[in-house]
């Protein structure tokens, strides 16, 4: 298998995203507004003493801001192409090419992410005008990046599974909306999972969504200590293995369905 086509897919996806210039700028704009709003909300809440012990206000604001920056990358759903192609019936055209179609979806998503990752830089600069972000030590930051990378892959496969449902139902929008809301809440993107009390806390930490946002973020703000890194990475990797296997199985079943039933 040669890599060239897949690099080219990523490059073209990057170029394609860049053609929607207005969207790019509104994305930065909306992010700045959200940073400001979250700062206000958390500051107000902390003045009422609702905070958990191990997360002071500056850590909380850092957490919320880094979560927003991560969402620039993680909210790009590269696999929505699957859904669109199924609805338009163009998936057949891709199957007639000498390529691995799932790898094509991944590289396309990766290219889209590339453009949005670039947006992180100006977004940080603007965000810094509004809030102060803690900067962790180099080893902690490296652990954060590693954890984020695993979370990125896991996020891709979760989306892949969701969008592949379209092979059977044609429409997945409602399912995706529900999963999106649930995962926004349960992934720790909006509220750190340490806020969930007792048994709820246990449950949310046991769900795959925690491995996408919560783990890298808690590493960043230092709630997860270095001696616990290995354990958390292991959980992330297990989820990744599970969802990549599930994606592959779904793809096989879907491809079989296409070749037997004609899509």
């Amino acid at each position: 298998m040669t890599l060239e086509p897949y690099l080219e897919f990523a490059k073209k996806a990057f170029a394609r995203e860049a053609t929607y210039r207005l969207e790019v700028f509104t994305e930065i704009g909306s992010l700045i507004v959200r940073v400001y709003l979250l700062r206000s909300v958390w500051t107000a809440l902390y003045s009422q003493n609702i905070a958990p012990m191990n997360l002071p206000l500056h850590s909380m604001i850092t957490y919320a801001t880094v979560a927003l920056l991560m969402s620039l990358i993680l909210e790009v759903d590269g696999t929505r192409l699957i859904r669109e192609k199924i609805r338009e019936g163009t998936i057949a055209t891709d199957l007639m090419k000498p390529i691995s179609v799932p790898a094509y979806f991944f590289s396309d998503g990766f290219g889209q992410t590339g453009l949005h990752a670039l947006l992180v830089i100006p977004s940080i600069l603007f965000a810094l005008l509004l809030v102060h972000i803690d900067v962790p030590s180099a080893p902690v930051f490296a652990a954060f990046l590693l954890s984020f990378a695993i979370g990125y892959l896991l996020n891709f496969f979760v989306n892949f599974v969701m969008n592949s449902i379209a092979f059977w139902t044609l429409e997945t929008f409602a399912i995706q909306l529900i999963v999106r809301w649930v995962s926004d809440l349960l992934s720790g993107q909006i509220i750190p999972l340490t806020f969930f009390p007792g048994i709820f806390g246990r449950i949310v930490f046991a769900l795959p969504f925690a491995a996408i946002y919560s783990t890298p973020l808690l590493i960043y703000v230092g709630v997860i200590q270095p001696h616990d890194y290995a354990r958390y990475f292991l959980v992330q990797v297990l989820w990744l293995a599970l969802f990549s296997a599930l994606s592959l199985a779904m793809w096989r079943a879907a491809a079989r369905r296409v070749v037997i039933q004609g899509g």
Binding site: E4, E8, P98
Partner: peptide
Amino acid sequence: ELLRAIYS
């Protein structure tokens, strides 16, 4: 160009 890459 993309097709050139796909079919090498």
